[in-house]
Simulated scan of single mutants.
Amino acid sequence: MLPGLTAALFLVAGLSACATTDTPPYMGGPDNFGEANRQTMMAQVIDPDPHYDTAIPETSGDHAADAVERYREGKVKQPERMTTTSSMSSGGGSN
C-alpha cells in the first residue's frame, strides 16, 4: 500500500504543476492590474461640468482700469510688508 500511496502523491504533485493562472498571485488578478495608476489618474481629473453659486465672479471694470492707469504712470500702491517667519538665533558653538 505504501508504494501505491507514494506514486499517487507524486502523480498529484506532478499534475498540480500543470495548472496555470492568467496572472501571478502577487498582482491580485486580472481585474486588479493597474488599479493604483487609475486611481491616481482619476484624482487629478477635474469636474468637466462644475456648478457654482455665481457663474461669473463680481468684478469692477472701473477698479481694474484705475489699477492699470496707476501701473502705467508708476504710481502703484505698495503692499504692506508682511513676514511669514520669525528668526531666532542662539549663541551656540560646536567643538
Rank of each mutant, 00 (worst) to 15 (best):
Pro3Ala: 01
Ser86Lys: 05
Pro3Leu: 01
Gly28Asn: 03
Glu80Asn: 00
Met42Asn: 06
Gly61Gln: 12
Asn37His: 02
Ala19Val: 11
Val45Arg: 09
Ser94Leu: 10
Thr83Met: 13
Val45Leu: 07
Thr59Arg: 01
Glu69Lys: 06
Gly92Ser: 07
His63Arg: 13
Pro30Trp: 13
Met82Val: 10
Tyr26Glu: 00
Asn32Gly: 00
Ala55Glu: 11
Gly29Leu: 10
Pro57Tyr: 04
Tyr71Ala: 08
His63Pro: 00
Gly91Trp: 14
Met42Glu: 10
Met88Thr: 15
Ala7Leu: 08
Gly93Pro: 03
Thr83His: 14
Val12Phe: 07
Gln78Glu: 11
Leu15Tyr: 11
His63Tyr: 13
Leu11Lys: 04
Ala19Ile: 09
Tyr71Pro: 02
Ala55Thr: 05
Gly61Ser: 15
Thr21Glu: 05
Phe33Cys: 04
Met88Trp: 05
Tyr26Lys: 03
Leu2Val: 15
Ala67Ser: 14
Ile46Trp: 13
Tyr52Ser: 01
Leu5Ile: 15
Met82Asp: 06
Val12Gly: 02
Thr85Cys: 14
Leu9Ser: 03
Asp49Trp: 06
His51Ala: 14
Arg70Trp: 02
Ala64Glu: 05
Asp22Gly: 13
Ala7Pro: 01
Thr85Lys: 15
Gly91Phe: 07
Met41Val: 13
Thr59Val: 04
Ala55Tyr: 13
Gly34Trp: 01
His51Arg: 08
Asp49Asn: 14
Pro50His: 01
Ser90Ile: 15
Tyr52Gly: 03
Met88Val: 11
Ala64Ile: 10
Arg81Trp: 05
Thr40Cys: 04
Leu11Trp: 06
Tyr52Thr: 05
Glu69Cys: 06
Asn95Met: 13
Lys77Val: 11
Asn32Ser: 05
Asn37Ile: 02
Cys18Trp: 14
His51Glu: 15
Ser90Gln: 06
